[in-house]
């Protein structure tokens, strides 16, 4: 395995993990149902349908109805999981989520699949660059983004332990060269807790989702240039883990954030809120620069929109220089 293949997540890893873990949960919990709106083929969750039959309910292409249905089912004692393309879940059904999931404190768990640019062939309409912003702004909503299949699995297994609604953001993946997990062996995911993946003293590289792997690679490159970078997997977007983030930046004195999301309203904004209140420090944001996406291969899209290791390094050097 070359150096370049050390970090990241694969299509098969993320999607298969979602599918397998939903089935595992379904065996454990006879009240669990999955509500789909015809993205189940793409998100690879049909094993749940094939295993549990009518505990998998499809709405047709009707996200608004799907979210309201999930609320009704939860009010009547079922435990609904709603895994949809994050774009359609959070944009199309935003009002339903606000009123009937958030305001209602409903025990409904939502999975935002194909987040950020990671539905490359479909372009801006299907890409989700503002779902963190939407979901974080809903009072009482728990929001996490997982960095790799292992963390996704743990987040899914623990989601019923969280009282009330949860939004788990995940990527589709499918970048062949990124094929192993970011989090270390023995990693324990906890809601509300972000984790330091690598310790350093000169700068904090704070990433979410697929950008965590880029932050780890950037740390390697910075090391070659003589800098010690700390890498934080900022999975706890809400409740936000102010303690871990502020402690890291208090030590290093500067931060770069990296996200597969608009830099407005996402991880960068959340970190800025934290630092402004607890530990003011220079910072730079790497992410989608307030743009709509487009269709194309992910190999072309990620560089075009600045979601690369090089961009993280560049931003870090801008602060370190």
């Amino acid at each position: 395995m070359s150096e370049k293949m050390r970090y990241g997540c694969s299509l098969k890893g993320m999607r298969a993990t979602l599918s397998d873990t939903l089935v595992e949960l379904g065996h454990k919990d006879p009240h669990m149902i999955v509500v789909d709106c015809e993205t189940g083929t793409a998100t690879n969750i049909l094993d749940f349908r094939d295993t549990f039959g009518d505990r998998y309910v499809t709405m047709g292409v009707a996200e608004q109805s799907g979210v309201s249905f999930a609320f009704g089912a939860s009010r009547a004692g079922l435990h609904p999981v709603v895994p949809l393309f994050s774009a359609f879940l959070t944009r199309r059904a935003c009002d339903q989520i606000y009123i009937q999931i958030g305001y209602a404190k409903a025990n409904v768990k939502m999975i935002g699949c194909y987040s950020g640019l990671t539905t490359p062939n479909t372009g801006a309409t299907h890409q989700s660059v503002n779902d963190i912003a939407i979901m974080r702004s809903l009072p009482g909503m728990t929001v996490v983004e997982t960095a790799d299949p292992e963390e996704l699995r743990q987040a899914l297994l623990a989601m019923w332990d969280v009282t009330g609604p949860v939004y788990i953001r995940m990527i589709r993946g499918d970048i062949a060269k990124y094929d192993i997990q970011c989090v270390p062996e023995g990693h324990v995911f906890r809601y509300g807790k972000s984790t330091v993946l690598r310790e350093g003293t000169d700068i904090s590289l704070i990433g979410t989702g697929l950008m965590v792997s880029r932050c780890l690679e950037a740390a390697d490159i910075l090391k070659e240039k003589g800098y010690s970078a700390e890498v934080v997997n900022c999975s706890a977007l809400k409740p936000f883990d102010n303690e871990t983030i502020a402690a890291s930046v208090r030590k290093t004195g500067r931060a770069v954030t990296a996200e597969n999301h608009n830099i407005i309203g996402g991880t960068g904004s959340a970190v800025a809120e934290c630092l402004a209140e607890y530990c003011p420090a220079p910072m730079r944001r790497v992410g989608i620069m307030d743009q709509y996406g487009e269709s194309g291969s992910l190999e072309e899209l990620l560089p075009k929109f600045g979601l690369t290791t090089e961009k993280v390094v560049e931003a870090a050097l801008g602060l370190l220089g």
Binding site: S68, F69, A73, R75, Q96, Q100, A104
Partner: peptide, 21 residues
């Protein structure tokens, strides 16, 4: 049984409850 007011959501809620039954 359901928070309503933004219109059009209640019938889908009812479907969820009736299906759960």
């Amino acid at each position: 049984e359901a928070p309503t007011g933004s219109l059009g959501m209640g019938l889908s809620n009812g479907c969820g409850m009736a299906y759960a039954a």
